[in-house]
Amino acid sequence: MAQHTVESVDAAAHRVTLALEVGLYPIEVLYGAAYVFIDRCFVLLDKDEGKDGPSKGGRYLVHLRGKTELSKKELLDLSGEFGNELLSQALRRKVVKANQKIIEEITTQAIAGAAGGTLPTDFLDSSDDGMDFLDDPLGIAVPWEDKFKKKSADQP
């Protein structure tokens, strides 16, 4: 399998399931793509073990369910977009690794230039971990309590 495949589409449930071979992308890429989608989809990751047991490959399954109603075409578009995101994240990891030195130097200069002082010694540490998709520490999710209010709380 050269890329991800659409495993199933359930328009009634607004859900599409993708499958991709374990090993096609690093796990961080799968997480990274999932992260991009969790503000507009319910994302459930699963693993379909290979015939020869857990250590012999297998497939990752990505279940995406729209937070709003989605048609079959929209679900297929969504799965395509997820595939694009996987590829983009994978490529970006390679580019960042290849250009790591210049990226760090420019970023450090830009922040130091703006701050006008010395930077913490661990300033760039968290950018070295390959999990740069998480370099958005504010998080995408709106606090749960804000999003889900008990109907009763709205009553006078």
Binding site: S88, L91, R92, K94, V95, V96, N99, I102, I103, I106, T107, A110, I111, F123, L124, S127, D132, D135, D136, P137
Partner: peptide, 13 residues
Amino acid sequence: RAMVMAGLNDTQP
């Protein structure tokens, strides 16, 4: 820092 790094052309495929 995250915004500066993300906004750098050298990080983009």
